[in-house]
Nucleic acid binder design. Structure first.
Length: 803
DNA sequence: TTCGGGAGAGTTTTT
DNA sequence: CTCTCCCGAA
């Protein structure tokens, strides 16, 4: 019976999965089957009847990880898993707080502030207190508040030693204000839940009895508060021999701790062993992902860190090819060389439809580095996808809509009030609002409450707003939620407001409509936990779908994984690459000052443990993403912030044994290769197929500016930002051929070099170059007002006209 | 209310 | 170099 789920596990994995029902620490190296062990452990507990589904709590950091775990379990077991709690720390805490809102001192309609909302609230409080926001950076105050909460400290508990009295005062005012408005920030979810469990024996006992098995993923990323919360749920000291009552199965890798900068405390791993009486730690050291060469490199680098728990990855796999370290002239040549390498490899591998481009990943230390790469990918017609950026529920128009929905649920939420009171514009200016805010501050009331109390004294324009909210509330109450949202989109005036916007209006309205789809999805999946019914038998106490949806929108903020399946080269920061793997990995900017980042190398006092060790772990994460091939690139000169830097090769690369490396610099690069797209020459310069079109003189890539992103990328409602550059279809070199191709491109587009044009967005301009053909024609246009841009004709044509 | 200029900053990121 | 933020003018 259990044999099938245990089949194929190596001895250590088997030992971890079938460990006794006590607290264990699993040290799981990169690519050692961590997620598999975690899910199989749960499956095993259920199959062996050691636990029922309701006795299991599985905690992760990201929604993605939670979803993956649940999906895998559903594939493994024929059980109904609805009684099992699988979620993020924040999601689980939210769930508990919703069930016990009254006990936790929260209104049942409490709303969650995201980081942006939190910052605006902090700013508003600081302005009310007449603080100079120039001298006092609100972001620092926000960080201080979050730092305090993540360390379990209320304003009353922070000592002057930790912060200025000013900061503590603002923190206190912020606490009061959140309480008055019935809103909580992310850190508050955890702190409030922790305090609830600590204070209320009734609540604590319920969950202590319930969750006999707690499983934690990425344990090395837990902060102080999360760890305290876990210990409380584990029933630290309540079990036999002073051990915990419940069993905590913690999986982590100290070498992959890369979030100390946001409060993660690796020390939790050793504290855990002591506090929860862990008898043994199980190390998963067999790597199933990378070649021996890649693994040896990773081990060599991480070996330079002190105070590791100790672990050495090994593989039974092949040795694999050497790691290429390539020196380039500058970041443009770097981008060109990467794209070039990818094109050649892609050609060798052949057009395997599914993973033709997806097998390649480019990892960088900072987001700014994606620029040159994106320009090159666009110009070369290679499909790519950049991770990161705005998520769906963070878009302005979506937040506007959510603001109205939140006003319906909880009108005392000042942040939402301020967001929508004059969006769309209804003539409520700064002066009116200042008056309202002042009155509110004097009376210690929320804006909404103040407005209601003012009655006839309320300025007429605010009356309009007040009545609008009242009417929306009333109408929404008698409607299905999806209809209510639809109604709000039009009745709020948002639709009309955005319809006036020529450029982005239609996209924005489409995004708002997409919210209706999201609500529909939510209604289908929503379920009320049985704990809710146990504690709140009164029907009235059950959460409204609206609250549930708004909560989910804030906690999940939209799926960044959307579009993950498109076949495109993946561009992302090393941080976002954690947990992923790719056949081919390029680590660009392997330079001293970039990776390791200069800010990590300077001060040791700031990060506590010294920033360099974390940078090294970051490099360890980067290297271990590669399955087959790994490339480092570095530049002799790199332009950043408008200056040129001459960085040395990253010291981390120097920590890799020479035997594993193949060093290449452009002067070594004897045999030029030409794939028909141009060549990578001794000079390190990219020389275009024609020798002039994309030559170093043209600066084709350099000119491709930010503005063309919106043109070049699909602008769907999702958060994925896929880019398909011009896919040129011609091959071969030679200037006469190139000239012929240029002609053909001109014929395809109906424009020719020198034409004066008018673009709906960028205004007047002159066509400078045309390349490609058919769907893949790219026009370079010098706009008089917006600079020079490279536009994919297929997309730009709707907005482009002859002048 | 919106636009434009000027100043300042400029790792990494989930919830 | 570019983006963001804030302030002042139309």
């Amino acid at each position: 019976m259990s044999s099938d789920i245990l089949a194929g596990l190596n001895p250590e994995q088997h030992r971890a999965v079938t460990a006794p029902e006590e607290s264990v620490l699993i040290l799981a190296g990169a690519g050692s089957g961590k997620t598999r062990v975690l899910t199989t452990r749960i499956a095993w507990l259920l199959q062996e009847n050691l636990a029922s589904t309701s006795e299991i709590l599985a905690v992760t950091f990201t929604n993605k990880a939670a979803k993956e775990m649940l999906a895998r379990l559903e594939g493994m077991l024929p059980y109904d898993l609805r009684r099992m709690w699988v979620g993020t720390f924040h999601g689980i805490c939210n769930r508990i707080l919703r069930i016990h809102a009254a006990d936790a001192g929260l209104p049942k309609t409490f709303q969650i502030l995201d980081s942006g909302d939190q910052l605006s609230l902090v700013k508003r409080i600081m302005r009310t207190a007449d603080l100079d926001l120039e001298k006092n950076d609100p972001k620092l105050f926000q960080n201080f508040i979050n730092w305090s909460k993540e360390n379990g400290l209320r304003a009353s508990q922070v000592t002057v030693k930790d912060a200025s009295t000013l900061k503590i005062d603002v923190y206190r005012a912020y606490e009061n204000e959140c309480q008055r408005q019935g809103v909580v920030d992310f850190a508050e979810l955890l702190l409030r839940c922790y305090e609830l469990l600590a204070r209320s024996e009734l609540v604590r006992t319920h969950y202590l009895k319930r969750f006999r098995h707690i499983l934690v993923d990425e344990f090395q990323d837990t902060n102080v508060l999360q760890y305290k919360w876990l210990k409380l749920l584990a029933g630290e000291g309540l079990g036999a021999d002073g051990g915990p009552l419940n069993a905590v199965f913690a999986v982590g890798d100290d070498d992959q701790s890369i979030y100390a900068f946001r409060g993660a405390n690796v020390g939790n791993m050793s504290d855990f062993m002591r506090d929860l009486h862990v008898k043994e730690t199980i190390k998963l050291e067999q790597n199933y992902r990378s070649t021996k060469t890649v693994l040896d490199a990773a081990n060599a680098v991480i070996d330079n860190n002190n105070g590791r728990l100790g672990k050495n990855l090994w593989t039974a796999g092949v040795k694999g090819e050497k790691i290429v370290v390539r020196e380039l002239a500058d970041e443009l040549a770097e981008a060109a060389s990467v794209v070039d390498e990818i094109r050649r490899a892609e050609r060798r591998i052949g057009p395997d439809a599914q993973t033709r481009w997806r097998r390649f990943a480019i990892l960088y230390r900072t987001n700014a580095q994606s620029r040159a790469l994106e320009a090159e990918f666009t110009a070369r017609g290679v499909p790519y996808r950049v991770y990161g950026g705005l998520r769906f529920f963070e878009r302005a128009e979506v937040k506007d809509l959510l603001g109205y929905l939140r006003m319906i649920t909880n009108p005392w939420d000042d942040t939402s009030f301020m967001r929508v009171v004059n969006t769309p514009t209804r003539g409520i200016g700064a002066k009116t609002l200042e008056m309202l805010q002042q009155t509110a501050a004097q009376n210690g009331q929320t804006l909404w409450a103040t407005m209601i109390q003012m009655g006839d004294a309320l300025p007429p324009k605010l009356c309009v707003f007040r009545d609008l909210i009242f009417s929306l509330r009333e109408t929404a109450q008698n409607m299905k939620l999806t209809d209510a949202v639809s109604h709000v989109i039009s009745a709020s005036g948002l639709q009309a407001f955005y319809e006036k916007d020529q450029k982005t209006g239609q996209d924005r309205i489409a995004n708002m409509k997409e919210v209706i789809t999201a609500v529909d999805g939510w209604l289908r999946s929503e379920q009320i936990p049985e704990d809710w019914l146990a504690f709140s038998p009164v029907n009235d106490e059950v959460p409204s779908p609206m609250e549930g949806f708004l909560t989910q929108a804030t906690l999940e903020a939209g799926d960044k994984n959307e579009g993950q399946n498109i076949d495109a080269v993946q561009l992302m920061t090393v941080h976002s690459a954690k947990g992923l793997e790719f056949p081919w990995v390029f680590i660009v900017g392997a330079e001293e000052g970039i990776f390791p980042h200069f800010s990590a190398t300077k001060s040791v006092s700031e990060g506590g443990q010294g920033g360099l060790a974390e940078e090294r772990r970051l490099m360890y994460v980067a290297i271990t993403r590669a399955k087959e091939r790994l490339f480092f690139t570095h530049c002799r000169a790199r332009r950043m912030y408008g200056q040129s830097f001459n960085n040395k090769l990253s010291s981390f690369v120097k920590e890799i044994p020479d035997a594993l490396l193949k060093m290449e610099s452009e002067s070594d690069d004897e045999d030029d290769y030409d794939d028909g797209w141009g060549r990578f020459s001794r000079g390190g310069r990219w020389e275009g197929a024609s020798g002039s079109k994309y030559g170093s003189s043209g600066g084709w890539q350099r000119q491709s500016s930010y503005g063309d992103k919106s043109e070049g990328r699909s602008s769907g409602s999702g958060s994925s930002s896929a880019g398909y550059g011009a896919r040129k279809s011609f091959a071969g070199a030679g200037s006469s051929l190139a000239a012929a191709q240029a002609k053909r491109a001109e014929a395809d587009s109906g424009y020719k070099t020198g034409d004066a044009v008018l673009h709906d967005v960028f205004g007047a301009g002159v066509v400078k170059h045309i390349v490609g053909s058919g769907d893949t024609t790219v026009l370079r246009i010098a706009f008089s007002g917006s600079g020079t841009k490279d536009l994919l004709f297929k997309i730009a044509k709707a907005k482009l006209h002859h002048a």
